[in-house]
Computed example of a mutant assay.
Amino acid sequence: MRKRHIKCLVGITVTTATAWGAAVVPSSAAAPGDPQVVRPGGSIQKAVNAAGPGDTIFILPGTYRESVLITKPGLTLVGIGGRTVIVPATTKPKAANTCAADGNGICVVGTKTKTVNDVHIRSLTLSGFKKSGIWASWTDGLTVRRVTSRNNGTWGIAQERSTRGDFRRNTVTGNGDAGIFIANSVSEEGGATDTRGTEIRNNTLSGNRIGVTARRVRNLLIDGNRISGNCSGVFVVGDESKPAAGAMTISGNRILGNNKFCAATPRLSAIQGSGIVLTGSEATVVRSNVIRDNVGSTPLSGGILLFKSFVGALNTDNTITRNVVQDNKPADLANGDTSGTGNTFVSNECGTSVPAGMCAE
């Protein structure tokens, strides 16, 4: 089957996929270039190992007890939504599968000199992994869509050292840290990296520690997400390194009632009732969000908060405009970083601000 036909099959409906899969030879017998099909009792990892760059792997309904390591470009994994479930293996992972050894569900991993490009993960569920549901490092053009990632120990979906990621229409709940986590690196310090337009759009994020964390990165979009029931909605984290975090847009999100309490960590104070928090950010635009009912009594509580980072980095040249920010406590808008310069609050519909006078009249 030619690759143009494979691409057409990626968008098939659940009904068609199930019927089609029943008539296709098992993945172990698939001809080169044909889509691989994994059935219950089969191994997704074996199908990945057998696939060539650009191939598609369909995963039929069932529960798969394994972790999947992807190091080839252009692969597409397609499940059947909530009926295709990947959970941790019950046996000790093989040493070669570093994804399993690190406690992750699906890993897409390249290197500094050779990124893994254009991998697509669609319509499946990951649950109960010690670290992350999906982990990506040194990737370009990774897309994750209509994936459910729930009840993982650290992150639901995480990406570091990567560019042009696209995360849309995912449901990410009950994870120990961020639902979606974008970072320059988790293993070393350093200035913010350019994600070259990574997009986080139209996801549902609830019951995590933080809905979305953007840590020491630049040039990304967080748009149209529904974020509720976390300790904090969106958290932009910078430090004293250069370039600074920021140059991003946070727009069109509904950030409601993020009032779960999360205790302090060695890096961060307790969090509760935080809508959007900027720490050490520059040139970030926060616009046209609806932020309501985020209530807490921690230093980071409130609707939209500028806060000097815990290593002393200031917020500079950020624009907060045309947001509806209501019924957040202790304040709808709070500039707790008065040493920062060039930060503007314009045309926001709100009731309370610290200092006073930042709400539109």
Rank of each mutant, 00 (worst) to 15 (best):
M1W: 06
V10I: 15
V14P: 11
T15S: 15
T18M: 11
W20M: 15
W20T: 14
V24G: 00
V25G: 11
A31I: 08
P35L: 09
Q36N: 02
Q36R: 15
G41H: 10
G42L: 04
V48R: 06
G52E: 12
P61H: 02
S67H: 02
K72M: 13
P93I: 04
N97T: 11
T98M: 10
A100M: 08
D102Y: 13
G103L: 01
V109Q: 12
T111R: 14
N117T: 14
N117S: 15
D118I: 05
R122D: 11
R122T: 05
L126Y: 07
W135R: 09
D140K: 14
L142C: 05
V144S: 07
V144I: 14
R146H: 06
T154V: 14
W155M: 07
G156Y: 01
I157H: 09
Q159M: 15
E160Q: 14
R169M: 07
N170S: 01
G174V: 09
G176I: 13
V186D: 04
E188D: 13
E189N: 10
D194R: 07
T195H: 07
T198R: 01
I200G: 00
N203V: 08
N203W: 06
T213I: 12
L220D: 01
N225Q: 08
S228N: 12
C231L: 12
V234K: 04
E240Y: 01
A245L: 02
I255S: 07
G257N: 03
F261K: 13
C262I: 05
C262S: 04
A263L: 05
T265D: 04
A270S: 12
Q272S: 08
V277R: 09
S281Y: 04
V285A: 01
V290S: 03
T298V: 12
I304T: 01
L305V: 15
F307N: 05
S309I: 03
F310L: 14
V311Q: 14
A313Y: 03
T316F: 11
T319Q: 08
V325D: 00
N328Q: 13
D337E: 05
T338Y: 05
G340W: 00
N343G: 00
F345H: 01
V346Q: 07
N348P: 05
T352G: 08
M358R: 12
C359P: 05
A360D: 00
